[in-house]
Design a protein around this nucleic acid. Structure first.
Lengths: 214, 214
DNA sequence: ATTATTTTAGGGGAAAACCACCTTTTTTAG
DNA sequence: CTAAAAAAGGTGGTTTTCCCCTAAAATAAT
């Protein structure tokens, strides 16, 4: 029997190679190659049809081109390739986003070896894999409990980043070449929009949502 | 030839099992078992002498009992066991701390498979492994450039954590059953000690140093 | 061209945060 | 037992933040 081909995308070389070793112990699967980011994967795909696998195991947190963008690109241009998300974080919004852009399954990094194998088998045989947490998440999402996206204007993002520093609002206004009163306005809008009470709340929101990275 | 035994400690099951698969492909090494945290490892060591390996591959960021504490315990009680740190983060202070408590080497998670194998070989043959970044770090440390530890009292830590919330200092004082003026004092001491100008600076310090986790 | 809408800006006031300096109590160490 | 250090509390003041409300200017839509 022909083994199914797998490609692993993860910026941590050791991890991707370790997962490679593991996948290679599975009966029905073999690793074609590994990549450090989405860009590298795009290059491979373009290079030759031989480099297009059955399944991609995709880490979410990568520099250069992250898992979500890359997954979107794959499912759009190579709909026959199944993408499975792989991440240490189990934030609802991240998982949902992956599924929205076409990932066919999602695994947290602290799952058992056998679970990964079963997931891979299900993907190539049934075309999908959902573990319980994803199912629960989907249910939550459908029943409308998953919070809707909050979007920000460019200026608001700039302001938020500066609010995460030791600058006073007056100094922030200087940096942005605006009147302090305008900054006052941005702050008030964001406080309402994000439902926070003060600057610390704003800072926490920015960090939790990766608008500002400490 | 007898293979050297390796134990992997990492809270992410998939990763530890993946690394297990990889190590098992090395000629001279085989994995005895894997653990999810330091506590589990202590249990194993106590259970039977058969569970004491030649080398421990230790992740730093773990719940329950972290890599540093665990390493300290191992080197103190089982000096014949070599511990090698393994982490995604390359913060100077973390690596130094690992070496201080007796780790015999340190690898970032984005190293090549062959590097890991070479490191393991060096450890069992020469008794140590140092890659270039660790060497540089040691040089920096010796030349006194590595910043000295700042320590905190229990109260200060509690205060810092509460300062990272949307509570006002008055509310923080209530929570800690202290006068607002005492809180004022804590704040002033910390501002000076950490060289920050305002509450946002304090919050950032707490997050960067994992005193508060968002 | 005339509405909307968004962006920017401002006044005034209350609360919170910040800062410098001082006193008392409790702990710790010699 | 006592000197020193650390912790806790206090005065009084300045600056910053926060919040309500209004409005000109720029942009987009009809």
């Amino acid at each position: 029997m022909m083994k199914h081909s797998v490609v692993i995308v993860d910026d941590h070389t050791l991890l991707s190679q370790a997962i490679e070793s593991m996948v290679n112990t599975f009966d029905k699967f073999k690793v074609l190659y590994t990549c450090k980011n989405g860009k590298e994967l795009m290059g491979k795909f373009a290079e030759s049809a031989k480099f297009i696998p059955d399944v991609v195991l995709m880490d979410i947190n990568m520099p250069i081109m992250n898992g979500i963008e890359t997954t979107e690109w794959i499912t759009k241009n190579y709909p026959d390739v199944s993408v499975m998300g792989l991440s240490v974080e189990d934030e609802d919004s991240t998982i949902l986003k992956m599924l929205q852009v076409g990932a066919i399954g999602y695994l947290l990094k602290d799952t058992e070896k056998t679970v990964l194998e079963k997931a891979l088998v299900e993907i190539v045989e049934n075309g999908f894999y959902h573990n319980k947490s994803v199912t629960n998440l989907l249910l939550k999402s459908i029943s409308g409990k998953a919070k809707q996206e909050i979007t920000f204007k460019e200026r608001e993002l700039t302001f938020m980043k500066l609010a995460c520093t030791e600058l006073t609002y007056k100094e922030v206004a200087d940096k942005m070449c605006l009147s302090p009163k305008t900054i006052d306005g941005y702050r008030d809008v964001l406080f309402t929009k994000l439902n926070v009470k003060n600057r610390v709340g704003l800072v926490m929101y920015a960090i939790k949502n990766k608008i500002y990275t400490p």
